[in-house]
Design a binder for these strands. Structure first.
Length: 211
DNA sequence: GGCCAGGACACCA
DNA sequence: TGGTGTCATGGC
């Protein structure tokens, strides 16, 4: 899809569904945790883990960094893959802490290498890295998660089995702001939950409203 | 009871 | 480079 079509898709989703106000969190620290915990997991399970973390640490980075690995694993157990995710949380928090949580300075230091630096964190792959870019560093970027793959697979008829094949095809229009990139991700995921099944089938009545 | 949910990684050819 | 197995919990 070309950039004009991407813009049109964004406008259509926004018109139809209204602003989603993603990411569902009250702070960037909470977003970092949620982005890792939600990997291949239902958000309902993430909520339980976040709730545990909040009571244990108040989402204070120094408190989270203080947690022994085993205790961290116990707190996030409900969201699954807790060993991998505990390591990913520690790696990410150590990285941000090393940079004193100065997101601006980190962008200035790494520049165009920011994404590849994020990808060095153990347990942080393409999708979580792009969530960081959009929701932590306020950069306009496209996040090719499972719902995005389903949506574009449905729209184009291609089967986007991998992240890369979709990423090569999707480039946000140059005038896309980071606010719009956040909104786009929220719209795609909420749309996907409502209308797109795993095997490519379309649920609900969206199609009848939008032939 | 099987299937699924907003991935990442090690290992293999 | 691309395919496959593994990691794990909780809701439906």
């Amino acid at each position: 899809m070309d950039k004009l079509a991407i813009r049109k898709l964004y406008d259509t989703l926004l018109d139809e569904m209204g602003p989603q106000g993603w990411w569902p969190a009250e702070s960037k620290v909470e977003i970092i945790l949620g982005a890792i915990l939600v990997q291949n997991t239902n958000w309902r399970n993430v909520d339980k883990s976040l709730s545990h973390l909040k009571s244990a640490t108040g989402f204070l980075p120094e408190e989270i960094l203080k947690l022994p690995l085993e205790e961290l694993e116990t707190l996030i157990r409900p969201s699954g893959f807790y060993r991998n995710k505990a390591r990913a949380i520690q790696a990410s928090f150590q990285w941000f802490d090393h940079h004193k949580w100065d997101y601006q300075a980190m962008q200035y230091e790494y520049g165009k290498q920011l994404r590849s630096e994020i990808l060095k964190l153990h347990g942080v792959g393409f999708e979580t890295a792009d969530v960081f870019r959009v929701f932590i560093f306020d950069q306009p970027a496209f996040i090719a998660d499972a719902y995005a793959r389903r949506l574009f697979s449905w729209l184009t008829g291609n089967s986007y089995t991998t992240y890369q094949s979709l990423y090569q095809e999707i480039n946000l229009p140059d005038d896309f702001t980071y606010e719009e990139a956040k909104e786009f991700h929220g719209l795609i995921d909420e749309f996907g939950k409502l209308y797109l099944g795993k095997n490519g089938q379309v649920k609900g009545n969206f199609l009848s409203n939008h032939p």
